[in-house]
Design a protein around this nucleic acid. Structure first.
Length: 854
RNA sequence: GCCGCUGUAGCCCAACUGGCAGGAGGCGCCGGUCUCAGAAGCCGGACAGUGUGAGUUCGAAUCUCACCGGCGGCACCA
């Protein structure tokens, strides 16, 4: 900004009235920088009560965006508030520093991923500091450094030891053009994101998996414990884990072998008129051996499905169902009926057994399929409970497909007349007795594939020896360090595979020649436990210290975007349970309270480079200051909702801070000479002073309550704005010297305290201007005084039959009867009674009286 | 298709468990005051009846049902 404006020096009283955030913020930024221990947490021996506030760590993409600013402004306000409430606050920050963009940048600009990443971190850290976020930087965690990722490797070895990490073949997205594997997010409309014309292939590759399914039951059950998580997230996790109770049933193949199906509706088995197999089902391959003509038809089904996956914005649901009859039959184990076996494109291999019994009368999909191919549709469930036939004597037919469970089983041999629930129990028991069925639970949740054929990730500590097979690296050989300065291209699989010094090793077991694993770990591994590392980031001999973790955990408040509601938060929960089971942590869950903030929207769309609607935090800080930018991100919408970015709104917030600044600066001298003792409500203060006291304490209550409950910081800020408006309304009295200085001084101090969590720079500056010497960060949060907040007079709304007719002002502590009398005596009320009978009056304390007439 | 969230002045948003929409706050607009004029500041004003339709209730933005629009999650899960 040009300095020329200040050539004519204004008189002091004018000069001090201009709110200059740059000057204030730079001054305090420098002071805070000089005191690195300012935001440090006390050790676990602290007498204070601990409070762990955590915001989701960012990916160091290059610069902070408004979503980050919003996320961290919420967390910082809470952290500062809790400091002021006397807690021992842990408020750390770190970097989710592995991942694809670094590699892409490397390919594009020939710049090493490590330097790119560390450079971004330096910049983003300085942005955070400039925004004034109160982080304990001595605990900073950077996941791409060996000091951190060696513990990923250590955990991997533990997982392997416990049989929670294993290798299996699995299908992956493969771009023939790039000659490498793609992450799901890199597949756009069935094609490679870099080669839009190139169809992505599915290839079978050996991949490392983590057995998350082993904890499926507990992950699901413990959602009940997460009482302070948003219901939305809990529901999403429940659906993601997707438990369903059902039965496995063997159908003997006419010829040789059997087909096992999974069903939740064994009660409909007498209505099964075909068996449907997924095209990839192993039995299909057997059938093809016998009848080679089947192969082309099945391949057709697969390719059709791949195609339909491509246009996935239409939704898989609309895809036509196709199928082919295999020419083979199985026997229904309940009645030995011969049932045809088909292969259908709507059966997925990844769920259940990849085979179903098709009951067209009682399943939407089976119904559609049967109609198309003319398969028999046999009703076995009626939509009523009574075994008595309907009155007309005719058999009523349900509207098909009938999938409700209000039911009466028919056409089912010994099971006729039962409800579907009874039938499920009896049939399952029968199947188990006769050894062809088994009650079972199936989860939608799959094991977590963690292999990535990428360079910029944690190397998996496994060595392949021709003699000994896959050998885990001994712990004392950790970390497996990622080699620097390697040539990254997208040609030919993992870049690590082309580094002989890395690949060629000796087998830890037999000392023979061996190869190192060249896959790296999914970055969700890093973020699954980083918040434990914050408790003791300098430990060199262990991932964490159990005692220290026990002190800090669980996290009291975790704050981040909803987009992580499923993956990150399920993996984190899984990791915690695994860590508990190997005895290094005591808690079952990592996070006590979760808060998911809304997105930042501009012009009706999420801010993104593609849309060109990105607002740069740097620019906003330069123009309006960090305080205004932060305050606006809290004020513009409730934190859990999407925020519509409007620069006018930011200007308004800036104007508000200017008002605060001007008011306090003008009247600071009063505070300096006046005592800070809380005033008594002796009723002798002039009316404006009393009004200000009242407003002040009402505001304290609202802000304090919101921090403990709803977190509607937008209304907190609005409440503080009201307080400031009230102060300005007393301006005449203040200037005239008629306003009690102690009230004014008290109000100013508490105003600054209330503002401290939201606009720390300005608050700190004004705190100093008010002559305070202690640290605002540790100064006790203002106490709410009920007596001072109380209204002297209450205006009751008077309704007649629910319609507002009048108002009556009464002293605040008036008894109910008195208010009723006054209401009935009111002229306007009398006028609207219109000679009718008063039936009753409804009294709502402090609010209204409703006179009901007839 | 299923599940969830959401709909209040021109705009962003308030209204806690049903209880005054003389909207809390902010933006924008109009006016007054300052000024030679303007900007800034300060002061004041106008504008909606709560997406639509029914129901419950003394009383509904709030509860219930149906429908319409926006957002998000899951999606042939057997």
């Amino acid at each position: 900004m040009p300095k020329t404006r200040d050539i004519t020096v204004p008189p002091p009283e004018q000069r001090e009235l201009r709110y200059d955030p740059q000057q204030i913020e730079e001054k305090w930024h420098a002071r805070w920088e000089a005191d690195p221990a300012l935001y440090a947490a006390d050790p676990p021996t602290s007498k204070r009560k601990k409070f762990y506030v955590l915001e989701m760590l960012p990916y160091p993409s290059g610069a902070l965006h408004m979503g980050h600013v919003r996320n961290y402004s919420i967390g910082d306000a809470l952290a500062r508030h809790m400091w002021m409430r006397g807690h021992n606050v842990l408020h750390p920050m770190g970097w989710d520093a592995f991942g694809l963009p670094a590699e892409n940048a490397a390919i594009k600009n020939q710049f090493p991923p490590k330097e790119w990443t560390l450079g971004n971190i330096v910049h983003m850290k300085s942005q955070m500091k400039r925004l004034g976020f109160a982080y304990d930087w001595s605990r900073e965690v950077t996941t791409c450094l060996p000091e951190y990722y060696r513990w990923n490797q250590w955990f991997f070895l533990k997982l392997y030891e416990k049989d929670l990490a294993y290798r299996k073949k699995s299908r992956v997205n493969w771009c023939p053009e790039c000659a490498t594997v793609l992450a799901n997010e890199q597949v756009v409309a069935g094609c490679c994101w870099r080669h839009e014309e190139t169809q992505v292939e599915q290839r079978e590759l050996e991949q490392w998996f983590v057995r998350t399914t082993k904890y499926a039951e507990e992950l699901l059950a413990d959602i009940e414990k997460l009482k302070d998580w948003p219901e939305k997230v809990r529901t999403m996790q429940r659906n993601w884990i997707g438990r369903s109770d059902g039965t496995l049933i063997d159908f003997a193949i006419d010829g040789d072998g059997k087909i096992t199906v999974f069903t939740t509706r064994i009660d409909t088995i007498f209505g099964a008129t075909s068996i449907q197999l997924a095209p990839e089902h192993p039995v299909v391959a057997d059938f093809i051996k016998v009848d080679p003509t089947l192969k082309d038809k099945v391949d057709d089904l697969i390719s059709q499905r791949e195609k339909s996956k491509g246009s996935d914005d239409i939704g898989a649901h609309d895809v036509d169902k196709h199928g082919v009859f295999t020419g083979r039959y199985v026997f229904n184990p309940f009645n030995q009926e011969k049932i045809p076996v088909w292969v259908a494109n709507y059966i997925v291999m990844g769920y259940g057994t990849g085979a179903i019994m098709s009951v067209p009368a009682h399943d939407d999909r089976d119904f559609e399929f049967a109609q198309k191919y003319g398969i028999e549709i046999r009703v076995v469930i009626l939509p009523r409970r009574s075994a008595e036939p309907p009155e007309s004597g005719q058999k009523e037919q349900p509207v098909l497909p009938y999938t409700d469970t209000e039911s009466l089983v028919i056409n089912s041999g010994d099971y006729n007349g039962l409800s579907n629930q009874e039938a499920i129990e009896k049939m399952t028991a029968f199947a188990e007795e006769h050894g062809f069925g088994k009650q079972t639970v199936t989860f939608r949740l799959k094991d977590w594939g963690i292999s990535r054929q990428r360079y910029w990730g944690t190397p998996i500590p496994i060595i392949y020896c021709e003699k000994c097979g896959a050998v885990p690296l001994p712990e004392n050989q950790l970390p497996v360090v990622l080699p620097d300065n390697i040539d990254i291209t997208l040609q030919g699989g993992s870049p690590l595979g082309r580094v002989p010094e890395f690949v060629n090793v000796k087998c830890p077991k037999c000392d023979g020649a061996a190869r190192r694993e060249t896959d790296t770990m999914d970055t969700f591994v890093d973020s699954s436990w980083y918040f434990y590392r914050y408790t003791n980031p300098q430990l060199t001999d262990r991932a964490l210290d159990t005692k220290t973790v026990e002190y800090w955990f669980p996290i009291d408040q975790y704050i981040g975007g909803v987009e992580h509601a499923i993956l990150h938060l399920i993996y984190s929960r899984f990791w915690t349970k695994f860590m508990r089971d190997i005895g290094i942590v005591k808690n079952d869950e990592p996070v006590l309270r979760l808060f998911t903030q809304g997105m930042v929207i501009k012009d009706g769309a999420k801010m993104s480079k593609n849309k060109g609607n990105v607002v740069s935090p740097d620019e906003m800080v330069a123009r309006f200051g960090a305080d205004s930018t932060r305050l606006y991100s809290l004020f513009a919408a409730p934190p859990d909702r999407d925020l519509d970015w409007q620069e006018n709104g930011l200007e308004g917030v800036h104007r508000f801070l200017s008002r605060v600044y001007r008011f306090v600066m003008r009247n600071a001298s009063v505070a300096k000479v006046s005592s800070s003792k809380t005033l008594s409500s002796d009723g002798k203060s002039p009316s404006k002073a009393r009004a200000i006291q009242r407003k002040l304490h009402q505001t304290i209550k609202r802000v304090t309550d919101d921090f403990q409950g709803r977190w509607h910081f937008n209304t907190c800020v609005a409440a503080i704005m009201e307080l400031v408006n009230e102060l300005y309304a007393a301006d005449d009295e203040i200037t005239a010297g008629k306003f009690p200085p102690d009230v004014l001084a008290d109000a100013q101090r508490k105003l600054v305290l209330l503002l401290a969590p939201f606009a720390p720079y300005l608050a700190t500056e004004l705190w100093e201007e008010l002559g305070e010497k202690d640290s605002l960060l540790r100064h006790p949060w203002p106490e709410y005084d009920r007596a001072l907040a109380k209204e002297d007079e209450i205006t009751y709304a008077i309704q007649v039959n629910g319609k507002l007719r009048s108002h009556v002002a009464v002293p605040a502590d008036s008894p109910e009867d008195f208010v009723r009398e006054r209401a009935l005596a009111d002229e306007k009320v009398k006028a609207s009674l219109d000679g009718k009978q008063v039936v009753k009056t409804i009294f709502v304390p402090g609010k209204l009286v409703n006179v009901v007439i007839r």
